[in-house]
Simulated scan of single mutants.
Amino acid sequence: MDTVEELNNTYYYAGRSNLTACELLFMIFCEKTVEQLGLTIADTGAVIAIVSGRNDIPTRTKPGGTIVNTSRASIASRRVFKNVKFPYMIKLPTLIGHITNPKSLKIRMVANIGTFVGRTIPVMGWLILTSDVSQITYRTMIDYNRIARGSDKIW
């Protein structure tokens, strides 16, 4: 048998025989995930950025309605940039809140470079991982639809 072949309404793929359409899709998905996330610097950096952006370090007492703790990324960026502001009093948008609860996300305009960098680091991590998931999904669908027959295709 070849690396991809049909036999008795099942598929043969990557050394595995008698795969159903769902099992074939899962095998291709796993293969594309390993290809995409193969210990690249960008993916490692994305995970570090997300973890460093977690609000889990206690901080001073803040007024009501604010997010309670602070993150390592925020502490480090404020330490590096101190109280330096953007030129011409430019204010840039930042995202605050918890990504796990989209209703808690808010956009705040800031003029302080340290605040902007500290809040942007985890957002960049999430964007990199979102890009990875999109690419994995796209490549999985392309390969699966190329292999699958008639009614087994996704679209």
Rank of each mutant, 00 (worst) to 15 (best):
residue 4 V to N: 13
residue 5 E to V: 14
residue 5 E to I: 14
residue 5 E to Q: 14
residue 6 E to G: 09
residue 7 L to D: 12
residue 8 N to W: 13
residue 8 N to M: 13
residue 9 N to L: 09
residue 12 Y to P: 11
residue 14 A to Q: 13
residue 14 A to R: 14
residue 14 A to L: 10
residue 19 L to W: 05
residue 20 T to E: 07
residue 22 C to E: 13
residue 22 C to R: 14
residue 23 E to T: 06
residue 24 L to E: 03
residue 25 L to W: 06
residue 26 F to P: 08
residue 30 C to P: 12
residue 30 C to T: 11
residue 33 T to S: 05
residue 36 Q to P: 08
residue 36 Q to W: 10
residue 39 L to Y: 09
residue 39 L to F: 11
residue 41 I to F: 13
residue 42 A to L: 15
residue 43 D to V: 09
residue 44 T to L: 14
residue 45 G to C: 09
residue 45 G to S: 08
residue 45 G to I: 13
residue 45 G to Y: 10
residue 46 A to Y: 04
residue 46 A to K: 04
residue 46 A to E: 03
residue 47 V to A: 07
residue 49 A to T: 02
residue 51 V to Q: 05
residue 51 V to D: 03
residue 52 S to G: 05
residue 53 G to A: 10
residue 55 N to L: 12
residue 58 P to M: 11
residue 60 R to F: 15
residue 61 T to S: 14
residue 61 T to K: 11
residue 62 K to Y: 04
residue 65 G to T: 07
residue 65 G to E: 08
residue 66 T to G: 00
residue 68 V to H: 09
residue 69 N to V: 15
residue 69 N to G: 12
residue 70 T to A: 06
residue 70 T to I: 10
residue 72 R to F: 15
residue 73 A to D: 05
residue 78 R to G: 11
residue 80 V to Y: 05
residue 81 F to I: 04
residue 81 F to N: 01
residue 81 F to L: 02
residue 82 K to Q: 03
residue 83 N to L: 06
residue 83 N to Q: 02
residue 84 V to C: 07
residue 84 V to F: 07
residue 84 V to Y: 06
residue 85 K to I: 11
residue 87 P to G: 04
residue 87 P to E: 03
residue 89 M to C: 11
residue 89 M to F: 15
residue 89 M to G: 13
residue 91 K to E: 05
residue 91 K to N: 05
residue 91 K to M: 07
residue 92 L to H: 00
residue 93 P to M: 03
residue 93 P to D: 02
residue 94 T to R: 00
residue 95 L to I: 12
residue 95 L to V: 10
residue 98 H to D: 12
residue 98 H to F: 15
residue 104 S to R: 08
residue 104 S to I: 12
residue 105 L to H: 05
residue 106 K to Q: 04
residue 108 R to C: 09
residue 109 M to G: 02
residue 111 A to Q: 05
residue 111 A to Y: 05
residue 112 N to T: 12
residue 114 G to P: 05
residue 114 G to H: 08
residue 118 G to M: 02
residue 118 G to H: 01
residue 119 R to F: 06
residue 119 R to P: 04
residue 120 T to A: 09
residue 120 T to C: 10
residue 120 T to V: 11
residue 123 V to Y: 06
residue 124 M to V: 14
residue 124 M to E: 09
residue 125 G to A: 10
residue 126 W to L: 07
residue 128 I to Q: 00
residue 132 D to R: 08
residue 134 S to L: 08
residue 135 Q to D: 10
residue 136 I to F: 00
residue 136 I to A: 00
residue 137 T to P: 05
residue 138 Y to M: 13
residue 140 T to R: 00
residue 140 T to L: 00
residue 142 I to R: 06
residue 143 D to T: 15
residue 146 R to I: 14
residue 147 I to K: 03
residue 149 R to E: 14
residue 149 R to M: 13
residue 149 R to Q: 13
residue 150 G to N: 07
residue 153 K to D: 01
residue 153 K to M: 01
residue 153 K to Y: 03
residue 155 W to Y: 10
